[in-house]
Amino acid sequence: MRGVVVGALLSVSLGVSGALASDASTGAAALLSASCSGCHTGGDVDTSIPKLDGYSADQIRDLLTGFQTDDDVTLMNRIARGYTAEEIGIIAEYLGTKAE
C-alpha cells in the first residue's frame, strides 16, 4: 500500500509538479471522502445537517465507528456500515481539522 502511494506521488511530481491542486486532492483519501460533501458542507450554507469543519480526525473516526452500531440516528448508521475500520480511518484523517 505504502509503495503504491509513493509510486503515485512520484509520477505526479514527474508529470505535473505543481499542476495538481495537491497530491492529497487526487489520492485515495480524496476519492473515499468524495461522497461525504453531498450532504456535509464545510461552506456557508445554512443547514441542520452537521457540517464537518471543526471536527478533528479522532472525532470523525469515533463518530463514524459509533454510527455503525447506533440505531437512534436517521441514516448515518446505514452509511457507516458500508466502510471498514481502515477506510473510516483514512476518511477521518482526510476530513479532520488539522491541529495547528
Binding site: A8, T26, C36
Partner: peptide, 12 residues
C-alpha cells in the same frame, strides 16, 4: 497525469 485510476467506495 499518467497515474492509474484507484478503486474506491461511493455512497448514495
Amino acid at each position: 497525469n499518467g497515474n492509474e485510476a484507484l478503486a474506491t467506495t461511493l455512497a448514495n
